[in-house]
Amino acid sequence: MKIAFELNGIKQEIDYLPDRRVVDLLREELGYTGTKEACGSGECGACTILVDGVSKLSCLMLAAQLQGRSITTIEGMSPGKKLHPIQQAFVDKGAVQCGFCSPGMLMATVDLLQRNPAPDRQQIRAALSGNLCRCTGYQKIIDAVESAAAEMRDKL
């Protein structure tokens, strides 16, 4: 089936099996391996991408659902050379250990800060509660989101 969609700002028209999962399309077909898979059943958030700006799970989406949509993956988060302020904050605040949850966490954070540019720590915890991390204990991820939000507000 021909599927036309926008991936990180670039128009794509591909021929792919409509019932394969979006995570497979991204990783296996298009080589975008920044989107991870860690459960395949909605429980971990590692596969989070933005679909028309909203965080969704690419392991629970079929390729056909991309038709006409615009999606963002971690690879599209900072189109230039410079890191996105949220990414920078993740690096600066030590929010990354093994890093396997990080792409999903970042996508979830983008979604959060679009909805709420000034979340408190409890709201951040709630917003990231669909993204499991086994390494960090979450604290430095919360620190990073808090700091990125402040930084982005200052820029406005």
Partner: peptide, 9 residues
């Protein structure tokens, strides 16, 4: 219910 992405979907 669920988590943010589950609620989005």
């Amino acid at each position: 219910l669920g988590s943010p992405p589950i609620r989005h979907m």
